[in-house]
Amino acid sequence: MTMQFNDETFRGDYTYHNSQKAIRRFPFPFDQDAYMYSVNIEQHPGGPEGSPFEVMFDVDEHYVAEMKDREITLAEDPLRCQSLPHMELAGWDLLELIMVSKARDYPELFTLHRDGNDWHWINKPLGIEKKFTFLDPTTLPCGPMEYITRQTQGDFALLHERDGNLWMDAGMVTSQADWSLDFDVGMNFFEWHAPVPKARKMGVFDKALKFLLSVGQDQSYRRLNWTLTVNPRLDTSPETYHKWGPEKRSVTPENVGRKQFLRVELQTFFRLPRSNALAFPIRCYLANLEDLAGQPKWGRRLHRVLRDIDPTLAEYKGFAVNQEMIVDYLSQFDDGAPTSPGIFPDG
């Protein structure tokens, strides 16, 4: 079956939309009716057929539009993609991982022919065909990490391991939940997480770092993180905060269902072979409250989670100012009935 790609925008007129199929496969992040930080890590890939967990790098109906949006963001601000000099090898590792995975998992969309280091890559949805020499940067129009992540949904951080810590020494970041790669590049695991409230005290980051350092070459994992965003905007960066900030105050009881989006990050972790670096892809999925509440289980649960959440977290995730309106809206979908365990919708 050939995939249909949406013609849609993530800024300006915001024509982004989810098909019924996309809503049903949305990675809803709450497996119970309450939320607190946890190191909720599972093996990846692996999950029900059709879910975004099924393959290494999920490609969906938003692929082409997301890549166009990335192009716009990079043209305005090239510092969204940075790689410190020692990270080029990790970039090649990432390029190999993605090209091999996509060609295997989506043969109708991507093809990779390899003859030693002579590689031939075909990306049909984006109309790209490229012959290049693996590990020779002069044969690509840009660095290997930039090349492949201009063709892959989600943000990417490449983490260098040294001194018992992980250092964010490269990344492609254009669909982030309000953090700046340009500012954070070069930081270690605790430094770049410093602005997150509470978690350090709870020991979450110590456990998470210990886990990440032990990820081996043949293992890969995932976890879900989430926040809320007004309008389906991928690029909620601090750099452009003064431009999109006013939109956060444009929510009304009438439009909240369509304008308020749940933003879910599917975070995955891979140990890269040649560089021994860790790849940390952060894939962003957006769905508005109205679409989510169409699944009765999700409507009930989302209401309970957002109603009862720790106020510090609501503040940190940036929706405290709209929380009352959101909870009021969602209350109409919550009849008090119990919800089934797990994240997937009923029926």
Binding site: H86, S275, N276
Partner: peptide, 12 residues
Amino acid sequence: STPANLFQLDLR
């Protein structure tokens, strides 16, 4: 086993 590395070069 598959390779693992506890003694990598600091490429910086």
